[in-house]
Design a binder for these strands. Structure first.
Lengths: 215, 215
DNA sequence: CAAAAACTTGACTGAATGGTCAAAATGTAG
DNA sequence: CTACATTTTGACCATTCAGTCAAGTTTTTG
C-alpha cells in the first residue's frame, strides 16, 4: 500500500508510509492547493517540521502519492490478456475498476483532480508511458475485432468509455449518492451498477452480422 | 451567456458579465482554492477592489458562475422528450452533451471540480432539483423499456453512463490529448468520438428478444 | 553505556492573498 | 453645468501557510 522508494531506516519506512496515507486522504479531498501541510501533518499525527524532514517540499509528498496511485490504477489495465476471451477480459477489467471506485475512491479522485487541472505533474507520464500502454491495449482490441470476436468499434474510445463510466462512481460519488440516496446505502449497490453497465457495454460490443436498424 | 440576476445599471450589467467570463476560465483551470481574485481581476481587466465592488466575496463570484454553468449543463437533459423516439432522443442528447464538452470544456470542468471536492456549494441542489429531474427522466426511460422500445437496463445507470462518457472528453481533455495527439487535432475528432460512443451505446440498449450469450 | 546518528519540534520568517478604506474619477439627472 | 450617485483604485491590513532553524529527544551502533 505504501511501498515506494528508498527507506533507509525502519522509522523512515514507517513514517513515510503514514504520511503518504494521510496525504492521499487530504489531497484527494481538497486538491493540491486546497490542502495544507499542517492538515496532513495532523492527520499523520506528527509535527509539520517532522513531516518536512521526510518530504522537504509539499510537492514531493504530492508527487509521491500520485505515483503510487498511478500504479494501482493501471495494474488491472496491464493485466488485460490478449489471449483471453475478449468479453471475459473486458468484463473482468470493468468489474475490477468498479471495485476500485468502491473501495478506494480517493485514488481515483486524486488522479481525476490532477488531470482536471491540466496534469502539471504527470504530463510526461501521460504522453509516454500511458500512451504506449493504451496504444498497446488498443491493438489487442483491434485484433479481437479482426477475428470477429467483438463488433468493430474504435478501441481507444471503447477504453475511454470504460474508464469514464467506472471512475464516475468514485469521482462523482457525491452526485451519485445525491441521486440514489437509498440504493447507495445497500451492500450490493456496486454489483448492481456493474450488472447495469456490463449489460449495456457487452451488448454494445457484441459481434453483429445484421445491420443496425435505420437511424 | 452571462445573464444572471439584478443588473441595476448599464455598467453593472457589462462588468458583471466580464467578471463571470473571466472567473469561469480561472476557476475551471485552477479550482476554487487554486484561483486568486487578482488572477480573475487581471483577466477581467480591472483592479481587485473594483472586482470586489461587484462581488464582495470570492465565494460570491464562484457560486454565481457555478449556477450559470449548471443551467447550461442541464438544459439539454431537460429537453429529452418523453414522446420522442427513444433512440433518437438519447442520440440527440449524447451528441449535444459531447458538443458541449468540445465547445465549452470549462463549464464541465468547473462542475466536475465542484463535485469532486464534495460539492460544498451545491449539495442541496443535487439532492433536490437534480435528483427530482433525474428521477423524472429515469421514469421516461422506464416507460420506453415497458413499451419494448429499448432493452431493459437500469435507467439511472444508463444516465450516469452517458454523463460519464460525454463529460470525459471535457474533464479528462489533457489525457485524451496525450493519448490521441494526432486525432484530437483533427476537425472531425468529436464526430468520430460521437460515432464510436453511439455505436456502443445504442447497440447496448437495442431491444433484444434473444437471450444474451452465456457469460 | 557512551558517542554518533537519526529523529522531533516550538518558535519563527517571508511571501501570498482575501478583503478594507478613503479618496479620486467618472457618469448621470435635473 | 452643477449636484449627486456610481464606479474605480492605490495603499494598506490581517491571516494563512510553505518552509527554516536551532535546540532538544530518541534510537542505533560500536
Amino acid at each position: 500500500m505504501t511501498g515506494s522508494g528508498n527507506k533507509r531506516t525502519r522509522i523512515q519506512g514507517i513514517n513515510r508510509g503514514i504520511i503518504l496515507e494521510a496525504a492521499l486522504d487530504v489531497f484527494s479531498a481538497y486538491g493540491f492547493r486546497g490542502s495544507t501541510i499542517d492538515q496532513i501533518a495532523e492527520k499523520a499525527g506528527m509535527s509539520k517540521p517532522n513531516l518536512l524532514y521526510y518530504f522537504p517540499r509539499k510537492e514531493d509528498i504530492y508527487v509521491t502519492v500520485l505515483e503510487n496511485t498511478l500504479e494501482d490504477w493501471l495494474a488491472p489495465f496491464r493485466d488485460i490478456d490478449p489471449d483471453g476471451d475478449p468479453v471475459e477480459e473486458l468484463k473482468k477489467y470493468t468489474i475490477l475498476k468498479l471495485r476500485m471506485s468502491a473501495n478506494k475512491p480517493e485514488s481515483s479522485q486524486l488522479f481525476a483532480n490532477e488531470i482536471l487541472h491540466g496534469a502539471p505533474a504527470i504530463q510526461d507520464f501521460l504522453r509516454n508511458n500511458l500512451k504506449r500502454l493504451v496504444d498497446e491495449k488498443a491493438n489487442v482490441i483491434s485484433h479481437w475485432i479482426e477475428q470477429g470476436k467483438i463488433a468493430p468499434v474504435d478501441p481507444h474510445h471503447l477504453i475511454f468509455m470504460i474508464w469514464a463510466t467506472t471512475q464516475h462512481y468514485a469521482d462523482f460519488d457525491v452526485q451519485v449518492r445525491a441521486i440514489l440516496p437509498d440504493q447507495t446505502e445497500q451492500a450490493d449497490f456496486f454489483d448492481h451498477a456493474a450488472d447495469s453497465i456490463l449489460t449495456i457495454l457487452l451488448n454494445g460490443i457484441r459481434p453483429r452480422d445484421t445491420v443496425q436498424p435505420a437511424q
